[in-house]
Amino acid sequence: MLNYTLRRLLMVVPTLLILVIFAFYLMRLAPGGPFTSERPLPPAVMANVLERYGMDEPLHVQLWTYVSNIVCCFDFGPSFSQKDRSVNDVIAQGFPVTLTYGFWSAVFVLLLGVPLGIIAALRHNGFWDYTMTGLAIFSQIFPNFVLAPLLVLLFTLSWGLLPGGGWNGGQWQYIVMPAIALGTSYMASVARLTRGSMLEVLGSPYIRTARAKGLPERTIILRHALKPALLPTLTYMGPVFVYMITGSVFVDVFFSTGGIGQDFINGAYSRDYAILLGLAILYAVLTFVLTLMVDLLYAWIDPKVRAGLS
């Protein structure tokens, strides 16, 4: 197992390198640059600006400088659009924000979605199944850009219970609505996947064997069915979790949380190459860690997978 983990970890560096090279050239192919503006800069001013950010060098030199600055000093460069800040500053300030509301959002999704799915599976095609599916649908038909204004209308404008936005260092009042708005549609997906995989597991030979042995239903479900049934859900949640903790542009913009979710989008629109590359690397590292964790989870739950990996 250790061997397997090490091999996977060895992939990190080449993967990131390919990502950086690919993203770097892709961004430069996009029309417009960070300093393209409504008023075209006079050539002399443009030349100064390009030199200031090292963009007067040939592309491969810029790429080399970028990579070596990261390797030597963990320096991801200055932001083009937020002139007083470096990429490190931007991520250090915004990532804790999205990490917080994203984490709570994931907790919300799992705590509601998984039980919903399990109950629906246990009462397959019964009243509870349809009710739960109905609830799941209900939550999925509210895309966040419809749900968020509704939440604010109710909780802020009508009842005055929660502030309509802001972060304030991450007090709980400021986390509730972003977490719900971000998570609701995923809750439906989680419920559906859990229901599907629970049904799958409940129909499998070894559960049938357990039933034949006369084990109590509760034991069968909690001891034998739950763990393997949760695997597809958790696999699904791996990348979703990465998405959640890096925030959503909609939530960041709508609730003014100040997270990095909006930087993925604003960085692209303003051609802030440095921010975009920094975020791409962060995203890749998180994806890497989460997929590895999910795989290890498989190995932990299923001895045969463990044997297969080693």
Binding site: V90, S256, G258
Partner: peptide, 8 residues
Amino acid sequence: KEHVPKER
């Protein structure tokens, strides 16, 4: 006095 980028 205070600056939280993208928030306040």
